[in-house]
Design a protein around this nucleic acid. Structure first.
Lengths: 200, 200
DNA sequence: ACCTGAACACCGTTCAAGT
DNA sequence: ACCTGAACACCGTTCAAGT
């Protein structure tokens, strides 16, 4: 939690850097404007020069979490692969799913994966309307599953302290299996919508 | 916001009543322990005799939201009908989906609809493991879609004040259509899992 | 362009003490 | 059994003023 030299002044990127660090160390409940300011060795009010409010700052953090580091410029990306990649991005950051879920719901975040999913659905033979719905459906599944999972893991850790619950409540492999099995169902359902009428 | 007579003392039911009222009037962001105490004409600390903390109180509120008022004791409840009923319960209360989503993730809430879905999935021919996964998948879809929808509606109302955005951004009918279309995909996918191997 | 300092109006939670 | 009163350690946001 030691601060960075106050020599140079900050920009939006630096503020988001600090926020990501606070998120990693304290989780979403501990991600306060004051703690971000502390990391930057700056007054809280200084943050409001860079962002109009906390939600906007969190949206910038979310954007970084879901950003596509396009090493492979999508070589035949099927629906399941896109969904799995999104899930991995969310799992890579503490409380990532909750953060992204709220930014998304507030309309402050565009999900690159959603556009990919829509494109893949079109390629699979869905009409335009259905492709959009299919993309949203898969996104809801991935975020919902991962949010639930990330919270449960945290709850299990906390709960294991005061109640001596079973120490290995869920094995990682089991969770991956459950995610894949559910995803398989959703993707099968999306595929079954191919070749429908193109009614408005 | 006028208070109730302090003559009789309160019980958990009364506290949840007050919380539901605050939720309806102020939404989840305005649902504070202090406001609940105000409605009951009581000090904040009094609430902690009834509930150990805020999350537990919110779980009790969530429980009431998703409670099944079993008028029809489930006459042939198919997957889509159960999902639609859950969605309607969530929509019936301000920020209902967000509230239930968080109580669920924290492991403080058992969803009656989930048990119904699991049973219906078994009846549809899924094995035990797949039926559980199918139930979770549908729950994630319903909560994810409804959460997003409830937040967007609120954001649209707020946004329409300062920005003169299109006043009817989404018609209710369109949203119902989108929910049903996505649900149809998910249910079709679940059905396609019937008759799978019964591996461990 | 970027930050300080101070204030405002809130939070959840604890705890001794009352009846 | 149920509540008061007071405190503790926090919050997000605003705003005049500095450099």
């Amino acid at each position: 939690m030691n601060a960075v030299p106050a020599s140079a002044r900050n920009d939006r990127t630096g503020v988001v850097d600090a926020a990501m660090r606070v998120l990693g160390e304290n989780g979403l409940p501990g991600l306060s404007m004051r703690r971000i300011a502390d990391v930057l060795d700056v007054q809280v009010s200084a943050l409001y020069w860079h962002f109009p409010n906390k939600q906007t700052l969190l949206a910038a953090v979310s954007e970084r979490i879901v950003a596509l580091n396009n090493k492979t410029p999508d070589a035949a990306p099927d629906l399941a692969a896109i969904a799995t990649t999104l899930r991995e991005r969310l799992l890579a950051h503490r409380d990532g799913a909750e953060l992204v879920s709220s930014s998304l719901a507030l309309g402050l975040l565009e999900l690159p994966s959603r556009a990919q999913l829509e494109k893949a659905a079109l390629a699979a033979g869905l009409d335009a309307t259905s492709a959009g719905i299919a993309a949203d459906t898969i996104v809801h599944y991935v975020i919902g599953f991962t949010f639930y999972e990330q919270q449960r893991v945290h709850a299990a850790v906390v709960g294991a302290v005061d109640a001596s619950a079973d120490l290995t409540p869920v094995q990682v492999g089991d969770r991956v299996d459950a995610f894949d099995a559910g995803l398989k169902m959703v993707v099968a359902g999306v595929r079954s919508a191919a070749g429908a009428h193109r009614s408005r």
